[in-house]
């Protein structure tokens, strides 16, 4: 698809560890359309955060190795850009970030207002490309400050002026994440990467934050890449969902199909492991493989009920059982295709 906003192709990322190279992403393909909200779902350690960080270009410098692949954003390979170019013109301008833990992601010793003004100094829509040594003009400060206040109203924060004078630890967790959403929107980006944005929050607040995030994103036509291990959260906000297992993407489908007609054995088991009224809780037997020496072929095969000898040899190619439904599995037909009757909330 040429009109994709983001297109990751064959991305391979490893981490140097004491025991050797951990192959965290195995030739991952991933796509996002403009304005689309895509969920990246998987257990912890499946590589979703690594993928998010690879797109942002903030993988740990001394241990991460990108051995192959491309990350095209707006038909521009981000892996070819210099790190300075990425920091100055992509991150915080075109792609912004919402972190997992809003408390520790704010700098503890500066007021919220000063951190937001700092962001605007470099990342405001008015800031001129590449000019970092220019003074932050008073007139720009005034407009940017108005933008901040407006946006704080948008994310439904009471008393914006008062909040700007506070330190991060002085506001509540939910408010902090609203602030983070506001900061992600301030530069008027084309895409927001939200890395488990509700994991650190109280369950009661999670739904509000998700609703808010979806609302502002749809309203502004901003794409959101939303990583989570919480299928309920993904259901709440995503247009499309991609499942990852141990560094491989296994299935992508629009949310409705994803929950009603999951094809990949892993996805099915994942959905069955959700609590519901009719069945007992089901776990997935076996454990997540070590990525130093991962299973060959489809990395799920040691835990898969329908695996054949083929699965251990080769990684299944991409197939399209339905328009917009991507699958990487040899045996999806033998897997139980009966509709999982999971009712999410």
């Amino acid at each position: 698809m040429d009109n994709a906003l983001l297109s990751v192709k064959g991305l391979e990322v490893g981490f140097d560890t004491e025991q050797g190279l951990a192959k965290v992403l195995d030739k991952v393909n991933f796509e996002m359309m403009p304005g689309e909200i895509v969920g990246l779902v998987g257990e912890s350690g499946c590589g979703k955060t690594t993928l998010a960080r690879a797109i942002l270009g903030v993988l740990p410098k001394n241990s991460a190795r990108i051995s192959s692949g491309t990350i095209d954003f707006d038909n521009n390979n981000l892996l070819k850009l210099s790190s300075k170019d990425l920091a100055d013109n992509i991150r915080g301008k075109l792609i912004t970030f919402i972190p997992q833990d809003p408390l520790t992601s704010f700098n503890p010793v500066f007021t919220i207002g000063s951190q937001m003004m700092d962001l605007m100094k470099w990342k405001s829509p008015d800031s001129v490309k590449g000019k970092y040594f220019t003074r932050y003009k008073k007139s720009r400060q005034v407009t940017d400050r108005k933008r901040i206040i407006d946006l704080l109203h948008t994310v439904q924060l009471p008393d914006p002026e008062g909040i700007l004078r506070k330190y991060p630890h002085e506001v509540s967790g939910g408010q902090r994440q609203r602030l983070m959403i506001a900061m992600a929107l301030l530069p008027e980006p084309r895409m927001i990467i939200a890395d488990e944005p509700t994991t650190a929050l109280d369950v009661t607040i999670q739904a509000q934050i998700l609703k808010l995030l979806r609302g502002v994103a749809v309203e502004r036509g901003v794409s959101v890449l939303f990583t989570t291990h919480d299928l309920g959260a993904a259901y709440e906000i995503c247009d499309r969902i991609t499942v990852m297992y141990a560094g491989q993407e296994v299935e992508t489908a629009v949310s409705k199909d994803f929950f009603s007609q999951p094809r990949h054995p892993y996805t099915q088991k994942l959905l069955q492991s959700l609590p519901n009224n009719s069945q007992d809780l089901k776990g997935i037997p076996g454990q997540i493989p070590a990525l130093i020496n991962p299973p060959s072929g489809c990395r799920f095969h040691p835990r898969c009920d329908v695996a054949t000898s083929e699965c251990a040899k080769l990684r299944p190619e991409v197939t399209w059982p339905k328009k917009g439904h991507m699958l990487r599995c040899f045996n999806s037909n033998s897997a139980s295709t009966k509709e999982t009757n999971n009712v999410i909330r």
């Binding site: 920091a87 991150r91 912004t96 704010f106 700098n107 470099w122």
Partner: peptide, 13 residues
């Protein structure tokens, strides 16, 4: 985490 965030938002090094 705040340094990771600041990097992810492209603050100058």
């Amino acid at each position: 985490n705040y340094v990771l965030y600041e990097q992810a938002m492209g603050f100058p090094e």
